[in-house]
Write a protein that binds this DNA or RNA. Structure first.
Lengths: 228, 228
DNA sequence: GTTGGTGCTCAGGATGATTTCAGGTAGAAG
DNA sequence: CTTCTACCTGAAATCATCCTGAGCACCAAC
């Protein structure tokens, strides 16, 4: 599941098999999907569905993918178009047709590849639809593998990353060292609890939390992240 | 067939043989070609044809290639000029004449060489006319099987190509070595993960990414391609 | 055959992460 | 104030990961 809530994709292909396959796959990834079986229908549905991404087969009845693409682009709305071109089509013709699209995928393609292309398009044209959860002054971005603190990315080791993520997700809650060890290091960890103190210190350093106001020590009980 | 639809080339040469030879050749490559038999005609035709590339013989009646080039450049339109110079011309004179041109080819030349020069010009001055998809400073062209980095084509082995394509398409995302192996080498690959490190290194070399800022190492997590 | 390019492995060194430790500090209880 | 204890801290020691240069096997082109 890499798809994001709120991303709308319009699929247009005249082959019902492919259409259904892609629809199920993309919906399963969390995208909001709408389908059309020819170019004219695609245009009509795009009107009210307002998709972020349109995936167009080139060879379609009524209106081919290229014309649909051009019409979509004329509307000057921000929409990304990905073309599906058949491998056996004459090369130069396909080359001409795909001009104007934002990306194209040559059939046959793997579903993974289409997903990657969609992601790439989203990142280029709709960056705000992607990326992370905001919690107080933090932003957890699992996809990028980084945590921002006040818009700045923290340079964290894997353990630091895991610990900070755990603290932020459980902010306002007292977390005993035992609990932290179990959750971040795993219950099979054999070492001393002091390791938690060491890593808490490291985080406080990197967060500039000199007064221990962000990560509070509750003597005898554990630690608590306070996002005021 | 390497030419792209939509690229317009104006040919000017006073020798009908050469003119026809080049016209047929370039048209066969998919370019839109227009011809002129002297300098004045070339200028006139350029006016309405609006070529992307002008190929000028230097020695022509009415107006020589150098003057045509200067006039074309004065129009402040984006146009690439490639000069054709005769072999028997004195070298430094050729050098002087070709000043102002974007490139020149010495007669006799192979058609392949001219094609290569045209491609190079397109890459430099009209990158969007080339096929493929632009992602950050990269341009993926699957049809041609090449990846450009800042307008320059990279010389990549098949595996390097696959890896770079995967990284670029998934830029901004942490990619573990396992994930990379599965996607680029295939899940049935039996070897060591070190192979990923080796190929990452090779890519970093070819990209001039000495500081590892483009392809970032996230210790313990994987790699991430960072554009912008 | 020879050459050159590619894919992969290996071993060492470099770099960074993790853990331990020993001493210092500061709340809490009496 | 004293004492006890939990926590903090800096550095050292250990450990893991990653980088790198070299080398081998394979295949295709010449």
């Amino acid at each position: 599941m890499t798809g994001e809530k709120g991303v709308k994709i319009l699929l247009a292909d005249d082959e019902p098999n492919i259409l259904q396959f892609l629809e199920l796959g993309l919906a399963g990834e969390g995208y909001e999907v709408c389908t059309a079986e020819n170019g004219a229908e695609a245009l009509r549905k795009a009107e009210e569905f307002r998709p972020h991404i349109v995936i167009l087969d080139i060879m379609m009845p009524e209106m081919n993918g290229f014309d649909v693409c051009r019409k979509l682009k004329e509307r000057a709305e921000n929409v990304a178009v990905i073309m599906l071109s058949a491998k056996d089509a004459v090369d130069d013709r396909v080359a001409g047709l795909t001009l104007g699209a934002d990306d194209y995928v040559v059939k046959p393609f793997s579903f993974e590849e289409l997903l990657a292309r969609i992601q790439a398009r989203l990142r280029n044209q709709f960056p705000n639809l992607l990326g992370g959860v905001e919690i107080g002054p933090f932003r957890l971005d699992e996809r990028r593998g980084e945590i921002l603190y006040r818009t700045e990315a923290l340079a964290l080791s894997p353990t630091e990353y895991g610990l900070l993520k755990f603290l932020v997700l459980n902010h306002g809650i007292v977390l005993s060292k035992t609990k932290i060890l179990d959750s971040v290091w795993g219950y099979q960890f054999g070492g001393e609890e002091n390791i938690v103190e060491v890593y808490i210190r490291s985080l406080r350093d990197k967060l500039g939390d000199k007064e221990h106001r962000l990560i509070r020590t509750l003597r005898g009980a554990g630690y608590r992240m306070d996002l005021s």
